[in-house]
Design a protein around this nucleic acid. Structure first.
Lengths: 137, 137
DNA sequence: CTGAATCCCCTCAGATACTG
DNA sequence: CAGTATCTGAGGGGATTCAG
């Protein structure tokens, strides 16, 4: 991956057309950057889920936040919501095709995370020891 | 990209070892998920920046948030901070090798965003027309 | 120039209770 | 089961001020 001595890391030009405009990154980050969306997508990547099933699969999420999260994902066209007018009610959530394509991105995130989490943790410990008084968390 | 009729999208197994544990995704998301980090990284991807230079390059960011952002990035070992004890003071911020590797991830984010932003925007408009009364933003 | 410190607003997550 | 409605506290983040 990295050559070694010098950081010759081939660095992609990420700023859209050379300008520092907002691209559309923020639009994505506002969605996948929040606390729950990614976890929900990861769960839905394993197949269809009902509401409670989804809530149990994502430990710690509240009813309210699950509702808001799936609503926003549905609004963005990443998740489909199918209501079966039975009694008791039954609602099925599934990833759309776009939603599935997002899992590749999440995969990349997880990979990068797995590769660097130790280094990051070490760097944090070092920084914290070097800066005993600081509430930068 | 997509085949067509059916969503046969080859879907990566993103959940670490098959379990729904948190992996380390959250650790990354807590960093790149926040409002400014990505924008700062994108700017620094273009080379070394001084503090004010960086602030001017990231429109809208306050002194306070820039300070906090670069501190956290430094703590995580993504950004190096070099102080030149001159007068007036001069501080240089640069991406570390790890920081550079992150730009690839951001690139992937930008690419996915560019590819789907129109579809997402359309989906949002459709959802908003179908749900006139809703403050899900 | 590069910050640190303080104030303060305002969002938003969590808990709780209620409905169909 | 699958939500909605309401309240409240913590915290993110902007503006401003002070310091080296």
């Amino acid at each position: 991956m990295s050559v070694g001595h010098i950081a010759v890391t081939t660095e992609p030009v990420v700023s859209c057309g050379g300008e520092h405009e907002d691209c559309g990154i923020r639009e994505v980050l506002d969605r996948i950057g929040d606390k729950w969306s990614v976890l929900v997508v990861v769960e839905l990547a394993q197949g269809m889920h009902r509401f409670r099933q989804l809530q149990r699969a994502v430990p710690g999420i509240s009813q309210r936040m699950l509702t808001l999260t799936v609503r926003r994902l549905e609004r963005d066209g990443l998740v489909s919501r199918t209501v079966h007018p039975t009694v008791p009610p039954q609602v099925e959530y599934e990833l759309t095709e776009t939603g599935h394509s997002l899992t590749h991105l999440v995969k990349a995130l997880a990979d990068w995370s797995a590769e660097h989490r130790d280094g990051i943790a070490a760097s944090r410990r070092a920084w914290d020891t070097a800066n005993p008084d600081s509430d930068i968390h």
